[in-house]
Write a protein that binds this DNA or RNA. Structure first.
Lengths: 129, 129, 129, 129
DNA sequence: GTGGTCTAGACCACG
DNA sequence: GTGGTCTAGACCACA
């Protein structure tokens, strides 16, 4: 199991457990995690990122309540068979919409020309793809 | 004073006071608010957005502590004369960097092609500019 | 706020936080808690039942994720305006179905005549109604 | 040996091994299993219900520790000669009491009239008896 | 005052 | 080995 599956920023305003849940949503929607795939164990993730196991457990539990994950008793968590993996590009783009709109609002507050923002984003997106 | 200066989402995970402070930072950096400009009163903002006056007051106080605003006795808050208004495009773009990088990470988790993301962002940026 | 709103059995196999969530579901469905009603604070409930505040908090958070409760920042939890209070008798009866079926199965395993079980249940239901 | 003796719900919050032990208690109390009766082997039960043999084994061991079952060398488990089979209706009804009381509490939380609950239970009890 | 987050650690349940 | 539950306590965010 790859405990480096998640990116965690212990600093930053967003709570760790929610960072994990949201990454799970996207990784599943994007198809990088498919139904039945096993997840790294709570202890692995906690050890790797040096965070408390309960924090990881909380993320997994919420994801389970949301129908993203399933618990195989004694074996660990897997991506739920009912989770909608590999969704259409349109619906994945919809999941990005809030971030896109926030970016637009911020760009306008900063009076940044669209062209400048798009150019920078292009660079970042092409960086080590 | 225009109480609609700020956009506030009382729901949403980001605390209201921080939404206000960050908007202030960007509006000043972008030059939409210049040194000496008066801000809408705590009361006006709170009434307009139906939020607690204490929340607005807190945002203003933090912005003051940060050197963005100044308290003029009897006249309310104004943009500080020491605030760095109308910064260079480069430094404003730097303020957008965290949001850009988050967007890139999310796009990759969603396995969205760069072209798709850029196209959508272009549309949003050109929308009612 | 009435901290005695909930019945909690710290012993017993069912985790405390789930006991609370399930009672919330039923109290809301039954109309004893209506949209907008305030809930006892985490600390009150924890103090009253002598359990850890985090256990109560966990229950409230799950209920919020489920759409049963809403968080009024700084003020506490209230029954969500979107929660379906005072549901029809039919749908409330449906919520009881799993317990009813378990009871039937157990009665049969115990070879208890239906009449005996019904008589006992009648007594209990009429007891201090 | 009839591996379908037990009803097992691998999903559901109640641990499988406890489901089995409790069914054993009731089947013995109700007289459907009498002293000396042989039980299906661990293998049979595990295979039939597609659960881990260790889980069945654990249930049998607990039932043995409780005096419900006896291990006959080379022959498997049988109902213990010391087990109190075919208990009185009163004592069997007592074993149902916790479920009855839980049902009553839930009915009240749901504000369901006694008559409605009793009617539904009657139907279920008479169904394919 | 409210709830939220995280930690450290104990102990349990399950396979 | 897996995850779950609970505790005690610290500290933060918000109104």
């Amino acid at each position: 199991m790859d405990a480096s599956l998640f990116t965690v920023q212990p600093a930053g305003p967003e709570p760790i457990y929610r960072q994990i849940v949201e990454q799970l949503r996207r990784l599943i929607a994007g198809g990088q995690l498919g139904a039945g795939d096993a997840l790294p164990s709570v202890r692995e993730v906690a050890g790797f990122h040096v965070i408390n196991p309960m924090t990881v457990s909380r993320a997994y539990s919420l994801a389970e309540a949301e129908g993203l994950l399933e618990r195989l008793r004694g074996k660990g968590m897997v991506v739920a068979s009912t989770s909608r993996s590999s969704q259409s590009e349109a619906s994945r783009l919809a999941m990005l919409e809030p971030s896109l709109q926030a970016l637009v609002r911020q760009s306008r507050e900063l009076e940044l020309p669209a062209e400048r923002v798009l150019r920078r984003l292009t660079t970042l997106l092409e960086d080590e793809p």
